[in-house]
Design a protein around this nucleic acid. Structure first.
Lengths: 165, 165
DNA sequence: GCGCAATGATTATAGTTTGTAATGATTGTC
DNA sequence: GACAATCATTACAAACTATAATCATTGCGC
């Protein structure tokens, strides 16, 4: 009697697995949408942070995103090459590269939001209005209870939890 | 005019973001638990597949996991080094390495399931029984509607979708 | 005002992880 | 009995990561 070397142990997956499964599905679809804009998820995060408050230093943004300075250089390079943001000199401190959105960056940011809204619709298309509302309520509750920071995604640089039971 | 260069665009995150956020949180916690057993998520997946049907070839398992043969070698090496499974010769085809669990592998698989159950409890500790049931129902519904395969996690080798709006 | 530690950005570098291609052994087929 | 196909392995190059060294600039103590 080993116990469970035979069939399935958990015929019905638990909430933890379902969350991981559907959550990753959501992440993947969203990432693909951002890819259509030529953006990596972290590009979008950086773009949004700059858009939220322009003129900040790379180091400040890097800290907020949990990225070391060396990686920030690369990401800013890429977004600058795409013409979405630009480094400007800071008159008060010439060491600092102040980051600003370009006009194109602002447009792209709007496109990001539009596509994110579409993503939301696509993902919840199988659920009714009240069901989506209930889902959001339950998940918000979990965010609170699990000590997560509302609006902050835990995985800017994380991998993930594959299959499982 | 511009639109939203000011404050928050989405004061309340949508279901898509919440799912990604909480889903990754679940993945991370689970991965940490597996780490306590010295296992990577993909080790666990492989272990479970072998446990489900012993004697299969590396190629067959690799296909099911979406891994190229070369990477399978590495994973099997590791699990074999941990003493959890073993390669045996296949009498019918000497090219094939048939994979079998060891006694220790079976024990570990049980530990995996116990820890996964604990993980489930930890993650849903902030919700009531009926709430968890409702959550599972909604998520199962999404799995169906989104064309996901029940019980199969989409991200064995995937990254993820970071922040977002 | 000078010297020096601290800071922001960058570059250099090494470690890790991944997939693709070449290799070797074995099988099945014509 | 030769030859294409198959399973496993090894060799190898590409992508990505963090850490440390470097350079310019700033702020502070004296």
């Amino acid at each position: 009697m080993g116990a469970d070397t035979s069939g399935d142990h958990m015929v019905v997956p638990g909430a933890a697995f379902l969350l991981s499964q559907v959550g990753m599905h959501s992440s993947r679809l969203w990432r693909e949408r951002m890819g259509e804009l030529g953006l990596d998820p972290r590009h979008v995060v950086l773009l949004r942070l700059v858009g939220a408050e322009e003129g900040r230093s790379q180091l400040a943004l890097g800290n907020q995103m949990g990225l070391p300075p060396s990686r920030m250089v690369a990401f800013v390079d890429e977004l600058e090459r795409l013409g979405l943001l630009e480094r400007r000199a800071n008159p008060d401190d010439r060491r600092v590269r102040a980051l600003y959105l370009t006009a194109k960056g602002r447009q792209t940011l709007e496109a990001v939001m539009k596509m994110s809204a579409e993503h939301e619709k696509e993902l919840t298309s199988g659920l009714s209005e009240p069901q989506v509302k209930r889902l959001r309520h339950l998940l918000s509750r979990m965010v609170e209870e699990q000590g997560l920071t509302p609006g902050v995604h835990p995985g800017v640089s994380v991998l993930d939890g594959p299959k499982e039971l």
